[in-house]
Simulated scan of single mutants.
Amino acid sequence: MSSAPTTPAAAGAAAVPPLFQGLFDDAAVFPPGNLPVAEAVPAHLAHRAAPYADAVGPLLCGAGRLGELAAAADAAGATATDGTGPRLRVGLVLPGGSSELGPALTAAAPFTVAGVELATRDAHEAVAALDLLLPPDVPAAVELPRELLRGDGLEEVLDVLVDSPYRAKFRTGGVVAGAFPDEAELAGFLTGCAQRGLPYKCTAGLHHAVRHTDPATGFEHHGFLNVLLAAAETDPKAAAEILAERSGTVLAEAVRTLTDRQVTVIRNSFTAFGTCSIAEPLDDLAALGLLSPALTPQEDR
């Protein structure tokens, strides 16, 4: 889920380009980052107050950790409802399905709920639950297991979601090699959404801008720049070729040639992705000349 920028750049200061605004949802408490909640809350508040705040989405939290999050937010003064302090913006991640939705919304009362990400094995059932329980001003994304999105399954799920107000969600990585889809599989999802005008978010494995092989694990990681550039494609072969590109120079040049209209189309499709590091993607963009170094975390410079 993406977050509307809340901290405008000061006059004369470098601004986050529209292509990257609200792109990076803060998944610091999830693997492989696994930052303790008590540390993640003040770190997130620091991100939201930094010069690069316009790039940062909400703090993502699983349903089972909302009590822990409330305690940490209260300690940081981020649950105030009387205007005396910031109110933490949270994205609810519900891996247990629709049964978690009602209790999670209740437990999230101390926060501003910026969105819901609901995992399910039945898209129809998930849409019905969201229609029943979700406040109308809260966006949601629906994730199905990748094994159910192969063949005709992908078409069926996307057709269900395109007739709803909800986005799709796709898992692009994890802590095992099998959690990473290859170019053809990811291209099928991206182009299926593009053909329908269906927005989506991604999660896991996209910490870096450019496709690469992790030297420590040997896992093949997609690059978030690859995904951004492939987001407007409706042809699976063309999308797969973009996803396979490993040259940061090539991808950066392609980004620089995007028109304002193309940027709008891309971001209306690919709305956000969860990353356990906010610093890594910003540092990558700065290294490629796509973001001012002033818009990267100070401690990394």
Rank of each mutant, 00 (worst) to 15 (best):
L88D: 12
V263C: 13
A294P: 14
E183H: 10
R301S: 14
L158E: 11
P51R: 04
A231L: 09
G115K: 05
L243D: 03
R167S: 15
G178F: 09
P136F: 07
D131S: 01
E100F: 06
G178Q: 05
P103N: 09
G218E: 00
A9P: 03
V175R: 11
L291T: 09
A123G: 10
D163W: 02
R301C: 10
A287R: 04
E156W: 08
F273N: 00
P5D: 07
L186V: 04
I278H: 12
L35I: 08
K237D: 15
P236G: 09
L88Q: 08
L133T: 04
G12V: 00
R146K: 14
T249F: 08
R89T: 15
R89V: 12
A80H: 04
A78W: 06
H47F: 13
G115L: 06
A70T: 05
A53E: 10
P58W: 12
A114T: 05
R301W: 07
A38H: 13
P32Y: 04
T257H: 11
M1W: 10
T275F: 01
F270T: 06
A4R: 12
A141L: 02
D214R: 15
A13Y: 01
D74N: 15
E100I: 04
T6W: 14
L69R: 04
Q298S: 15
Y200E: 11
E117H: 11
H222W: 07
A286I: 02
D131M: 06
A80I: 02
V175A: 12
G97F: 01
K201Q: 11
P145W: 09
N226K: 08
A119M: 08
S98G: 14
G115W: 08
A55I: 05
G178N: 04
C193P: 15
R211H: 15
P281Y: 03
T271Q: 15
T81K: 10
A63C: 02
P145A: 11
L190R: 10
C202G: 05
N226W: 00
A28Q: 08
E253P: 04
L148G: 10
D214I: 15
A15Y: 03
A177I: 07
R246F: 01
F170S: 05
E125M: 13
P110D: 01
E220K: 14
